[in-house]
Design a protein around this nucleic acid. Structure first.
Lengths: 209, 209
DNA sequence: CGTTGTGAATGTATTCACAGCG
DNA sequence: CGCTGTGAATACATTCACAACG
């Protein structure tokens, strides 16, 4: 079931957060939650939360709130998290290998099933139960393990070339840790540490406090 | 000189990117660059770039473009990157220690000057030339090393408590790797891997291709 | 009551389109 | 000419405010 594509970007980002809060609420045994309770957890307004949840269709009950379990599964459906996504880590240097051990990847519907590196010295080892293979075996490895998403953690100067190989190998989306803009025709989600630090520096300098 | 606070958020984010492109252009010996050249590098429109740069005041010359060196220094000024920011890494597990070795932090105006961890087993070691100290010494360490920004890389359940300690110790901003919403009264910039992956999954499932 | 869902109003960001400059 | 800077137009996102509902 393809999710309704009409959900605006900012809303999708917040739905991720709501889902986390819902799982926490569910874990605490709360069977129901109101838009204002969700909003309070993140500093949003209740109207914002309701507008966002409105994208999923009728899900709440006036006077009561939202069923935590039902709403969570509704969000998972909309975000396509009601399935397993196979990941490949490409570049197993400091950041790549740290990510392979990141528990949250194992926990949810995201599973690291393959890893590659161009450096022969790093290949052959096993990190978190996954063998690191040479980059030259990318295409076969991706096909064998049925990889859908790649986490790209290589130096910026190689990022575009490796990204091209990934797309050629049939990867459907890239989580890009390299500080470089990729030109490919699959979705790319950047994680840009320098940019985040710079944004922080700006806000610290300009915000009143 | 406090930077003009009237710059919209999305623009600040893009200014970081433009700066990177300008440095690359400067490195290639290009003394001048046009809005459309910058735009092309990231898939933006030229009008967008000009509008963004307009926030910095008159900086370009019609018929010619922008002086790379001058514009770069103008952006650095606006983003408060024309100074050094001292960082503390808090939580030196897999991600924290990988960040300490991340070259880009050393390169620019961001300098890791202190590191802390709650786990005694991790304390005492030296990573990338910085001693890891126990969390109990946070306040002294922050004061001694004149730390302004903290990189928070501790498990989600401890994030809020440690963030409170950081603010009490005089930290001015937090780069938060923990998947938790912090309630503090300094700027917080989140880096949320799960959220980015979820966003990617959504886009892969919903975007036409 | 308390809480949802949503039109209408407001606010913010992007794009268009072009006058004006080198 | 090519390119900037910017008002005007458009698109998008958030907030307001309230009728409808259990």
């Amino acid at each position: 079931m393809p999710p309704p594509a009409g959900i605006p970007r900012p809303t999708v980002q917040r739905l991720s957060l709501y889902l986390r809060e819902l799982e926490s609420a569910q874990h605490d045994g709360r069977h129901t939650i109101s838009s204002s309770a969700i909003a309070r957890a993140f500093g949003f307004t209740d109207a914002q939360v309701r507008r966002d949840l409105g994208c999923l269709g009728q899900t709440g009950r006036p006077g009561v709130g939202y069923q935590t379990a039902f709403l969570a599964s509704r969000i998972r459906g909309a975000l396509s998290l009601d399935r397993t996504w196979n990941l490949a880590i490409v570049g197993t240097g400091k950041i790549g290998s740290a990510l392979m051990r990141y528990p949250r990847f194992a926990g949810g519907g995201f599973k690291v099933v393959a890893a590659f590196d161009a450096d022969p010295a790093l290949c052959g080892q096993t990190i978190a139960g996954v063998d690191v293979r040479p980059l030259s075996q990318l295409a076969e490895g991706v096909a064998e393990a049925n990889v859908q998403l790649a986490v790209l953690a290589v130096p910026a100067e190689f990022a575009q070339a490796v990204a091209d190989q990934l797309v050629a190998a049939g990867i459907q989306g890239i989580l890009n840790f390299a500080p470089a803009a990729l030109r490919v025709d699959v979705p790319v989600e950047p994680i840009d540490l320098s940019r985040a630090l710079e944004q922080l520096a700006f806000r610290v300098s300009s915000e009143p406090s």
